[in-house]
Structures are given as C-alpha cells and as structure tokens.
Design a protein around this nucleic acid. Structure first.
Lengths: 105, 105
DNA sequence: ATCTTATTTGGCTATTATACCAAATAACAA
DNA sequence: TTGTTATTTGGTATAATAGCCAAATAAGAT
C-alpha cells in the first residue's frame, strides 16, 4: 500500500474512531435535532460533566461537531449531518447478525 | 437514557469500533471487489499474518464479514456491503475539516 | 506418516482510551 | 470584589487494543 492510500485510511479511521463509542453515538443522535449545550447532555445521561466534555472534544477533533460559546454555555452542533445516514447500514449489520444467530440456534 | 437505548448504542458502537482502524478499512475496501483469502491481504500489505488474521476476526465478530474455508485457504467476504456507502460521508468530514484548517491559515 | 503451506491462537509489551475526581478557567450576577 | 454556574483541563487508575513472535492446528502434497 502506498503512502497516499495509507494516509487516506488513517484519516478515515480517525473519524470513524471518534464515532466508535456508545455515548458519542448518542450525542450525535441528539444533535440531529439541533444544537445543544453541554449541560443538556449531562442532564439527560448519567455521566460526569468532564466525561461528556471530553467526548465532545473527541467529536470536535474529528471534525464531526462544532461549537459556539453563548454566555456561560457552550453549544455544540453537527458539522456534517450525513454522519447519521450511516446508522441505517449499521442497523442492517445488527439485523443480519441476529438472523445468523437465529440460524445457529 | 433507558436500558433499551443504551443497548442500541452499544450494539452500534461495537460495529463502528470494528471499522475504526486503517487496516480494517482497507480490508473492507478490498473486499468490495469480491472475496479474498488471508494470504492475499498479507501479500498486499506490510504486516504479519497473525495481525491480519486478528483484524479479520474483529470484522467477523462485528458481523461485517463472513468466511468460508476452501482447502487450505480461508476466504473472507463482505456480509453487508452498504458499509462502504458510509465512506462518502467520512470523506465529506475530511473535506469540511480541510476547509476549516484553510480558514484558520 | 511426514512435509509444507495457510491460518489461528496464546502470550507479551507498548500504546491508547475511558472514567472519575479535583482543580482551573470563563462569564455573568450580586 | 466575591460568588455562582458552566465548562475544560490535569491527574491517575484501569481497561482495551495493536503488533509481533512463537507455537498450535488444519488441509493437502509427497
């Protein structure tokens, strides 16, 4: 594999890795309905403020979300909403898997 | 978040995590063109046999690929090819990111 | 049966990710 | 200024991942 292709896959993996966590997938889903401040996430889920803040940083560093400061609060929003379209295929994998398990039983 | 939603995001994260590695993304790309045996991957990339084998196991456990033994060789194939469609959006994130960096410079 | 080739498995180490706590910062309010 | 709220940052313990080597297994060839 040449260097160009290597870099391509590394760049893609970085973004996909940023999505590869249940809490972050939930955050992405929530952001579909519009921007939200950090405290709104903390309210809705049983997690530490710092934990949510760090998850948001991971998404920010991957270029998936963006934020804006409004007074004391920081509002995050989806930068590239097509991210959500992928979930259809992920669900297809889950369904296909549950079929395979059925067959085995 | 209720337990059902928690499990949903965990199941999704498991699949996405399985994709979140440059070598595995490359494998997925290669499999688009049809099934391949382990040795074909080893030939094409500078990596150990056991490393590739373990990457394939990760994809198998996530339900993304499937395999079939043919004589001495094991052939892997994509089980749910829609996985590839996602890359379009991943590329959109990369492009959006490079634009943001341009603005900063 | 022995040899060879293809692949998986186990073990080890180095690196990275996660979650929680405490402390730091930032903005507004009193 | 001091206090309060929202958020980030740093530290640290723990768990997960990656890659390499050696050994184990499996199938076909001699």
């Amino acid at each position: 594999m040449d260097n160009h292709r290597k870099q391509l896959y590394e760049a893609r993996a970085k973004i996909i890795k940023a999505m590869a966590h249940p809490t972050r997938l939930w955050i992405i889903d929530e952001l579909y309905y519009g921007e939200k401040c950090v405290c709104e996430f903390v309210d809705r889920i049983d997690a530490d403020f710092s934990t949510i803040s760090k998850h948001l940083l991971v998404l920010k560093n991957a270029g998936i979300v963006d934020f804006e400061k409004k007074g004391k609060q920081v509002y995050y929003r989806l930068k590239v909403p097509c991210i959500l379209q992928f979930m259809g295929c992920v669900e297809a994998v889950i369904k296909s898997e549950s079929k395979t398990i059925q067959k085995k039983i």
